[in-house]
Structures are given as C-alpha cells and as structure tokens.
Amino acid sequence: MAELLTFENLGNLLMLCFLQAVLGFDNLLYISIESQRAPVAHQKAVRFWGIIVAVALRVILLFVMIRLIDALAEPFFIMNWPGILEGGVNFATVVFVFGGIFIIYTAVKEIGHMLSIEHLGTDVNQKPGKSATQVVLLIVLMNLIFSFDSILSALAITDVFPILATAILLSGAAMLLLADGVTSFLEKNRMYEVLGLFILLIVGVVLLGEAGPAAAHAMHDDALQIKVFGYDIIPMSKSTFYFAVIVLFAVEIIQSGYSRKLNAERRAAAHQ
C-alpha cells in the first residue's frame, strides 16, 4: 500500500480526477435527461442505481481492459476499398460507432418528440412510457460507452489499477452528488433540456470521430486510419467541443434575455 503513495501516483490521481470531471460532463447530462423518462416517483432511485451499477461495471471494464488491451487493440477487419473506404476496425472502433449512432438517434428522437403536437398537450410531469428498469439499463449502457473514451485516455496516463479505480469511484461519487441538482435545474428551466439534447447530438458526432483513428492509435500504424472518400475521419478536439458547448449556452442565455425584453415591451405597449 505504501508504494502507491508516491508523488507520481498522487499527481496521476489528481490528473485522472480532472480528466474524469471534464469527460464526465456529457455523461452526467445524459443521465439527468434520460432519468426524466422514468416514472416521476422512481426518478431519484433511477439516477442513484444507474450511477452505482454503471460505476461498478466501469471498474470491472477497466480491470478487464488493463489485461486485454493488446487483444482489444488488434484490428479484426481491414477495409480496403481505395478512394471509398479504407482503414482498420478494432473493438474500440465498434464501440465508438455504436455509441455515436445511438446517442445521435436518442437526441434526434427526443427533439422530434418535443416538436410533436402530442407533446404540446402533455403535462411536463408525465413522461413517455419507459419503466424504471429500462431507464437504468439505458443509463448503465451509455455510461459504459461514454467511459470507454475516458478509460482509454486514463490508461495513457497510468496503468496502476488502484489509482485508476480510485479516480473512477471519486467521479461516480461526484455524479451522485450533482445528478439531482442538474435534473432539478432542467425541470425548472425546460428550454435548457433542448440545449442539452443538442449537446448530446454533438457528443454523438464526437464519438463517431473517435472511431476514425481508434485502430491506428492502438497499433501505432497510420495505415489503419479510417478514410472515407480519401479523407481521414479526424476526432473533434475536447477544446473545440467545449467551445461549441459554451457558444450554445451563450446563444441560449442571450436569446432568453432578448425574449424577456420583447415580452416586457409588448406588455407595456398593451397597457398603453
């Protein structure tokens, strides 16, 4: 135990906690939005058990990946259609593609539901028909997909399992503390739920971008980089992602303020 308490390991732990916080924002957002699809009486329990089970499975996934990282990195299929589709496909590629498509589908479906006529006549506290178990399973599944990216990034910092596991547990505790607050905020400010769905849409695109160099990075072979019509699929940088999120929030805040100003002017004109 004493050999773990080194300055290097403590520094790595702090770096991993920061990494988990940065990469976990979109995860927390998904949990907050998805939990509202469960029956109202079960939403708090859904968030709690969804996070607990997901964190436990994330630690197990980390344990397995540390031992099977080489096997997971090996491409099991090479696409060789010059000028159309080229590159290698490994386990990480499949996870990123599946996760990206699923998140984009979820975001588009929920945005479409908000725009539907039926939604306009529905009480905001009545959620679409999903059982608590279904929502917990979805949260666990998407937490694992989100965590794949953070685990791969964490393994680039250190391969000391206790340090990695501690960072994951601390991030899980932070999600438990913040999930109710984020959900409550979204319930009181419904317009930000739409904003959150568009952020999830961007997250799906980010994950699809991560699929491009997954095999190439794992095998240190640029020939395995996925190319579509001769162009590399390049992942969006985290700084670009968070800049886009900040811009979306800024636009929403400015638009909300402008709408309030217009409504105030209309009320004043009506009273004259």
Rank of each mutant, 00 (worst) to 15 (best):
S171W: 00
I254H: 08
V53L: 15
H113A: 15
N80P: 01
L19M: 03
K127W: 08
V245G: 05
M15E: 09
V64I: 06
G230E: 13
L23H: 00
L197V: 05
V124F: 05
L4T: 07
K188Q: 09
F148C: 09
A165D: 04
I51H: 04
V182G: 01
L138T: 02
A156N: 02
G83F: 08
G209L: 03
M175R: 09
V245D: 00
H119N: 04
R266T: 13
N27D: 15
A21G: 13
I66V: 14
T93E: 00
Q225D: 01
M191K: 14
A167S: 08
S153Q: 11
N143A: 02
A264D: 14
L62S: 14
I60S: 11
I104V: 04
V136Y: 02
V206C: 09
S184A: 14
L14C: 06
Q255T: 03
R260K: 15
L200P: 06
L16G: 07
L13G: 09
L169K: 14
T166L: 13
E265G: 04
N12C: 00
F77R: 03
D70M: 08
H271Y: 11
K44Y: 11
I246P: 05
A268F: 10
L14T: 07
S256K: 12
T122I: 09
P162L: 12
M79I: 11
F241Y: 12
E118S: 08
L16D: 10
D222K: 10
G112M: 11
A167N: 04
F161E: 10
Y192K: 09
Y242D: 01
D70A: 02
I199P: 07
R67Q: 14
D149A: 11
G181R: 14
Q272R: 15
L4E: 01
F48L: 08
G212K: 12
L195T: 09
I226W: 00
N143T: 13
F198Q: 10
E3N: 12
I103T: 01
L152G: 11
H119P: 00
G83C: 01
L137N: 00
D26C: 03
F229S: 12
G230I: 06
W81F: 13
I52Q: 12
L120G: 01
V228G: 14
F102W: 13
R190Y: 12
L200S: 05
L141S: 12
K188S: 10
F7T: 07
G24W: 03
L23T: 05
M219W: 10
Y231T: 15
D232G: 13
M219V: 14
D222T: 10
P162T: 09
N9E: 02
L4N: 10
S153H: 02
L208P: 02
A215P: 05
M15K: 13
N90Q: 08
G209E: 00
P82L: 15
P235N: 01
A216E: 10
L61Q: 11
H217A: 07
R260Q: 14
A268Q: 15
N90G: 07
V203I: 13
D149Q: 13
I145V: 13
I254L: 13
G230T: 11
M114Q: 08
F102Q: 06
A54R: 06
E210T: 08
A165Q: 04
V203F: 08
I199W: 02
F18E: 13
L224W: 12
L57E: 06
K44S: 03
G257M: 01
L176I: 03
A269L: 12
T122V: 02
R260L: 15
S237M: 07
